[in-house]
């Protein structure tokens, strides 16, 4: 059978290698990061159940807490964006609907992330 690949492509040996491998890898990387970050977040929620407004804000304004919660959002939102993209690509076959949903899937985590991080910084620095 004739090999249709270019000599360079054959040497690189990466197959079609565009974004699939990186997608797979980042899904795993964020999954690993999510484990401690989510556990911290659950612990934080448990500690703050029913706590008064001032206490919640004081805890969230702690620099360590602020930082970890920001990392939580970055990792979790990226992970869920990658995951939802796969779901859309698997089940949505109409080209227009697929493109629209993939675009929405980019905006949704971004908006949530920017809003949440802004809220956190506002609590941390807003006084």
């Amino acid at each position: 059978m004739t090999d249709m690949r270019t000599p360079l492509g054959r040497v690189r040996g990466l197959g079609s290698a565009r974004e699939g491998t990186m997608h797979f890898w980042r899904q795993r990387l964020t999954a690993i990061a999510n484990v401690p970050l989510v556990l911290f977040m659950v612990g934080l929620m448990v500690a703050l159940v029913g706590a008064p407004y001032e206490d919640v804000r004081a805890t969230l304004a702690n620099p360590f807490v602020t930082l970890v919660v920001i990392l939580f959002f970055v990792s979790v939102l990226y992970h869920m964006k990658l995951g939802m993209q796969i779901v859309i690509e698997d089940y949505v076959h109409g080209e227009g609907a697929k493109v629209a949903l993939i675009a929405l899937n980019t905006f949704f985590p971004l908006v949530i992330g920017v809003a949440s991080i802004f809220a956190l910084l506002n609590i941390a620095f807003g006084g």
Partner: peptide, 23 residues
């Protein structure tokens, strides 16, 4: 695993709303 992933996707909204309320 896939269904729970999709559910969590929207569940993140609950955390975001809580944070924004605290702000």
């Amino acid at each position: 695993h896939r269904i729970t992933g999709v559910a969590l996707y929207f569940g993140t909204l609950l955390v975001a709303i809580w944070l924004m309320a605290a702000a």
